[in-house]
Design a protein around this nucleic acid. Sequence first.
DNA 1: CGTGCTTTTGATTATGATCAATAAGTGTGG
DNA 2: CCACACTTATTGATCATAATCAAAAGCACG
Lengths: 248, 248
Amino acid sequence: MPETRPYQHHYLKAACANCSVLELCLPIGLTSHEVERLDTLIIQRVKVKKGAALYRAGDPLRSLYAVRIGSFKTSMLSVDGREQVTGFQIPGEMLGLDAISDDRHTCSAFALEDSEVCPFNFAQLEKLALELPSLQHNMNKILSREIVREHNLLMMMGNMNSDERLAAFLLNLSQRLSIRGYSSRNFVLKMRREEIGSYLGLRLETICRGIAHLRDSELVEISGRNVKVLNLDGLKQLVAGCHREPPL
Amino acid sequence: MPETRPYQHHYLKAACANCSVLELCLPIGLTSHEVERLDTLIIQRVKVKKGAALYRAGDPLRSLYAVRIGSFKTSMLSVDGREQVTGFQIPGEMLGLDAISDDRHTCSAFALEDSEVCPFNFAQLEKLALELPSLQHNMNKILSREIVREHNLLMMMGNMNSDERLAAFLLNLSQRLSIRGYSSRNFVLKMRREEIGSYLGLRLETICRGIAHLRDSELVEISGRNVKVLNLDGLKQLVAGCHREPPL
DNA sequence: CGTGCTTTTGATTATGATCAATAAGTGTGG
DNA sequence: CCACACTTATTGATCATAATCAAAAGCACG
């Protein structure tokens, strides 16, 4: 990711009401009148070029972002400059939730492809949430859902071997894409092997070997970054009947 | 943890205003009038016996809980019955945040010693947060802080070896205890080696060996569950100059 | 159409898991 | 209070998994 300049401002007039990811984003369950009020927070949508940072660790929290088009990775840097990928975000998913803790982003967010986000000014969002109970409730749920996501990640890190983690990763991505109306059986990995590895706590070579194993067992067909799921149940079984010891 | 009966109800009249962990808990930064209103949500404090569950995975979300006295572990069960510990909570820390996502607890919470919690009815809490902006803001921060905590855990799982993870765990516990006014140099581990291991993605034997290593390098003195930190900076250095490869 | 980067695959090594046996605590009932 | 049973902790020996090192093959983009 050599592109380091701040994100580009391509101003677009926003309109939650006719946004295609409306039902996956902050406004879930809001009345059309409430959505209109939320709309007023989004000054403009923002385009982020592939490889560019939407924000960086240490930046003050200005806005939360909903991914509208494209995809992102969020990552932290360790003291000695190693990257830990903490998540991949696709349309309808939120970015920046970790920053509320300390009014400062703890992760950086990079676009994995040319992308577009809706920024919600956080101060205004909190203010509006005081007036719209369902918005407040949504925010709580979205924050809590992120906690649950990370619990599952921890579970994976603690109890799954490399092949199982990879299978779980593909399955999770497949399911999230399917919710967004994309194919759950054919999709493209926008991230590098190294980034998948970092996310799963593995080296990139281990990811390559895992892919080879899944291919050998005819669960998926992966060539380059193109994924075709051949045996969804098989994948699920691999993830479910997982863990380092057999059940006694 | 053989004790499986639901938590015991020892009713105590609650009063945030003169609670010793007030400034670490939900009411941070609230005016005394606001704290009074929050007080009305806590019908009574609840005592939980060592080993008993405060709630279990699958239970409907009724309340969030602030630990007042004692300590807890939260854990999830995998399909084949293996435990993944997701956190340890000490006084002033919140329990149940993951349940907001789906109105259902995804973890179980067990008392590691005889303990006491303050339950906040969640529905009432959300309602009250609409009227008290600083309460709403606190809730957002607490949720976000939990996300940051888990990011750091992921970082640990992904980039640290066993000794470094153990050192990071001890350091983190030491710091949290110190914030609560306990000694940061002398404390007692209320959890078993196995639970520490599960939390850190390691086996209990590896924890024992790690303890032996830290003892050999004269960073800490650990006998049984009693911890004495001998060289805080040394511990920090081990955690900071960590990671599987040396910095290039 | 090279020149990076990224991915793949192979060979070897290191770390932590597993298996096993012993020791140290903890709590209970006599 | 002690003896016993049981849980928890420690340490050793061996093994398995994934990391590391290395080299070649694909790709993508200027």
